[in-house]
C-alpha cells in the first residue's frame, strides 16, 4: 500500500514581487528517490526550503506525513541537506552530530553511537574529531549529509548534494543515497541530470515556478514506441541516420547533439533492435561508445516533442 508523504496544494511563493512558485500542486508517495529538476531560478530551492520549514509559503498548503513543515511530530522523521548550509566551525563533527541526535531524542550514550554510525555511513569516521573548517568541500558535504541521516529519517530532502564535487565524491554520495533507499525516501534537487538518471525513478520538473503537470517516470516502458540512445565515436551523421532509419521497426532517428543519436522504434515489431543496431554499426565500421535503452533524462525533460 502506498501512503502519501508529501502533499502540496496551490502552493505559491513570491520574493519581493517575483514569483518563485506558482500554483504548485503535487503528491508524493514513499519509495524510490524522486528527482527535482529545473533551470536556475525555477524554484527548486524555494520548494525544498518550504518543505523543510525554513521558509513560509506566501499561500497554499503543505503537508508532510499529514503535518505542517517544521512540526514537532516531524522531528526525526524528516531531514534535509540545505543548499550551502555549513556546520558550526567552533565544534567538532562529533560534538555537533551528538547534539543533533540528542535534539532528536537520543540519550547521550546512544547519541554518541548514532553520530559514529552516520559518520561511518558517509565514510568519515576518521574526521569525527575534526572541526568543519579543516574539511575539504567534498568532506564537508558528506558531513552535512551525515547530519541528515541521523535517526534513519523516513524522508530526506537533498538540495544539490553533488554540486561542486569531484567525480570520486559524487560517486561516494551516490552510493550513500543508494544504500539508504530501502528505508528512506529521498527528494533530490540537482542540475546533474545523468546523476538523477542513475538514482531516481521519478522526476518532478519545475519551470518558472510552475510544476509540470505530470511526474516523469524515468524508465517508462509502457508504450509500444521505445527509444535507444546511441553515443558514437566520430561518424558521418547523415549517413548513420539514413542507415539506422532503414532498419526494420525503426520509426525515427534524431541527432540531438554531436555523435549522439536517439532511435525510436516499435518494440512490438522489433523487440531485438539492439542486435540489429550493433550489426549495422559493425558492417559500416563505425565505433560506438555507449548504447542504452531509453532516452537520456535531459532528452526526456527538455527536448521531447
Amino acid at each position: 500500500m502506498s501512503s502519501s508523504i508529501v502533499q502540496c496544494q496551490q502552493l505559491n511563493h513570491v520574493y519581493d514581487g517575483k514569483v518563485a512558485l506558482n500554483d504548485v500542486n503535487f503528491e508524493l508517495q514513499a519509495g524510490e528517490p524522486i528527482g527535482l529538476v529545473g533551470p536556475n531560478g525555477a524554484g527548486k530551492t524555494t520548494l525544498l526550503s518550504i518543505l523543510s520549514g525554513f521558509l513560509h509559503p506566501t499561500s497554499g498548503t503543505v503537508r508532510l506525513f499529514g503535518h505542517s513543515p517544521g512540526a514537532a511530530q516531524l522531528n526525526g522523521k524528516v531531514s534535509a541537506l540545505p543548499q550551502d548550509a555549513r556546520l558550526d566551525p567552533s565544534f567538532t563533527l562529533k560534538e555537533q552530530l551528538v547534539f543533533y541526535a540528542r535534539l532528536q531524542g537520543y540519550p547521550k550514550p546512544q547519541a554518541i553511537m548514532e553520530a559514529s554510525r552516520v559518520l561511518e555511513a558517509v565514510a568519515l569516521p576518521e574526521a569525527a574529531d575534526e572541526k568543519p573548517g579543516v574539511l575539504s568541500h567534498g568532506m564537508a558535504k558528506r558531513a552535512a549529509i551525515a547530519q541528515a541521516l541521523i535517526g534513519k529519517p523516513t524522508l530526506v530532502l537533498l538540495d544539490e548534494p553533488t554540486a561542486g564535487l569531484d567525480p570520486v565524491n559524487v560517486r561516494t554520495i551516490r552510493s550513500i543515497i543508494a544504500e539508504q533507499t530501502s528505508a528512506t525516501t529521498f527528494i533530490i534537487s540537482s542540475h546533474d541530470l545523468p546523476e538523477l538518471d542513475r538514482l531516481c525513478r521519478r522526476i518532478l520538473l519545475l519551470e518558472n515556478g510552475r510544476l509540470q503537470t505530470e511526474t516523469i517516470h524515468v524508465n517508462e516502458q509502457q508504450s509500444d514506441t521505445r527509444f535507444i540512445t546511441l553515443q558514437m565515436e566520430s561518424c558521418p551523421a547523415p549517413e548513420v541516420i539514413a542507415k539506422l532509419e532503414a532498419l526494420d521497426g525503426v520509426l525515427q532517428v534524431s541527432n540531438p547533439q554531436k555523435n549522439e543519436f536517439v532511435v525510436a522504434y516499435n518494440a512490438e515489431l522489433q523487440p531485438t533492435i539492439d542486435l540489429q543496431l550493433l550489426q549495422c554499426l559493425q558492417t559500416n565500421h563505425w565505433q560506438y561508445r555507449q548504447l542504452s535503452h531509453g532516452k537520456t533524462l535531459e532528452e526526456k525533460l527538455f527536448f521531447s516533442e
Partner: peptide
C-alpha cells in the same frame, strides 16, 4: 551560515 537550518529540522 545555515547552521540554524540543521537545528530547526530537529527543534522549533
Amino acid at each position: 551560515r545555515g547552521t540554524l537550518r540543521f537545528i530547526v529540522l530537529r527543534s522549533s
